[in-house]
Write a protein that binds this DNA or RNA. Structure first.
Lengths: 223, 223
DNA sequence: TAAATATGACTGACCGGTCAGTCATATTGC
DNA sequence: GCAATATGACTGACCGGTCAGTCATATTTA
């Protein structure tokens, strides 16, 4: 009964998780999409269960493939996770590096970063990817290193540059942010950690939280 | 064995020497120390391997007891972890609550908190306990709740009070820190996360990091 | 039909928690 | 004092369940 649905079925099949048209009929297009489907399924699975606790069998089910199929695309579970991190975060980092900051005041740039963080990270699954790296990283050095090279170093370089210019323009009273660019990202990290741990007892309003931080640092008057 | 037990069973059972603690037969001193030994071993084991990956068999080996013995002192693995958190962190929280802050300027109090954090938390195994809570908490709601009630809520109350007084005294330009006391602890959390993930590529100097934060917030001139 | 792909039953290793039995120590009897 | 007896803390083999990764077989493509 496999052939039934002739080949053409190809193209669209791949899509999301569910679509999965009965077995059979894989065209190169569908095949190409399989890798994406697995990554997408892994994101869902690991986001809800964690990397260590997430089961590849469930990833396979979500992706509409068999467990063995995953091993045709990824050598092992850890590499699958690594590819997931790359797929989700690298584009955002690249966009950040490419963003034209010009000579805008640091406060203004920081406001934009907050907005971007809230929309592109916290408002999406990407916050779960980051949380996964933070929580599982200590146990998986390869993932920690990858994340450091691919994300942390690059983001810090961007922030350091901004901070340096701000100091030169007299927008900052000292070079604290140049020496420790991490300080600008701290509230974002804390918000992600908090949401994973305490949201059920005390939900946090990320944007309000981060703007309060800017108020604290830049001394803006409260509304 | 039949005869033996009769009569006497009555009277003396309790009275006599053994007055003290329930105790069975083993030396009470030895036994009292056993619980501590297990907790201490659990700290080592979980610190290096993580809670989920840490093996109770190894905890037992480190403590010099058999695996089954652990279950004579703790009902299960999760409770063991919880008791560990309580034993390590509650005293510090209590000390913080009891510390006489008086009318000292917030900046001064904050400096003291940094010193205390560096010495009592970051310089000890307590940072590992906190990291464990942060990384394993999302997967173990009971632990997250316990930590929230026992540590987070109490610390935030203390900070909020300090921030409130600082606002009234005009030491802060707005109520950002009153609304989000977490902001004061953010660098500490980030430092703990960082040390677990990236120390091998870029070690962080906690005290310098946290003091830079205070410089950023309170606007102190760079040296 | 051969090659490329995909499948899912299966294997081996792991580990939390259990429990029947052991034995060090306390108590009793004389 | 000390042998007989009682106690319960302690032990570790074992059980049940889980899951990453494998591979013989089946399906699809060319």
């Amino acid at each position: 009964m496999k052939r039934a649905r002739k080949k053409s079925a190809a193209g669209r099949g791949k899509g999301g998780v569910a679509a999965a048209p009965r077995r059979g009929v894989r065209s190169r297009a569908a095949q190409a999409g399989k890798r994406e489907a697995i990554l997408s399924a892994a994101l869902e699975e690991f986001s809800t269960r964690g990397f260590a606790a997430g089961r590849l069998e469930d990833v396979a089910r979500r992706a509409g493939v068999a467990k063995g199929t995953i091993y045709l695309y990824f050598p092992d579970k850890e590499t699958l996770f690594q590819e997931l991190v790359r797929a989700e975060l690298s584009p955002v980092v690249a966009a950040l590096e490419a963003a034209p900051v010009g000579d805008l005041p640091l406060r203004v740039v920081a406001e934009r970063l907050v907005t971007m963080f809230a929309r592109e990270i916290f408002g999406t699954h990407r916050k779960d990817v980051i949380r996964l790296v933070l929580t599982e990283g200590p146990r998986f050095p390869a993932i920690g290193e990858f994340y450091y090279r691919e994300v942390v170093e690059r983001v810090m370089a961007v922030i350091r540059g901004m901070a340096q210019r701000a100091v030169e323009r007299g927008e900052l009273p000292n070079d604290a942010l140049v020496r420790f660019p991490q300080l600008l990202g701290a509230p974002g990290i804390v918000a992600i950690i908090w949401s994973g741990l305490f949201d059920r007892w005390a939900k946090i309003d990320v944007e309000a939280f981060m703007r309060a931080y800017l108020d604290l640092v830049f001394g803006r008057r409260a509304a």
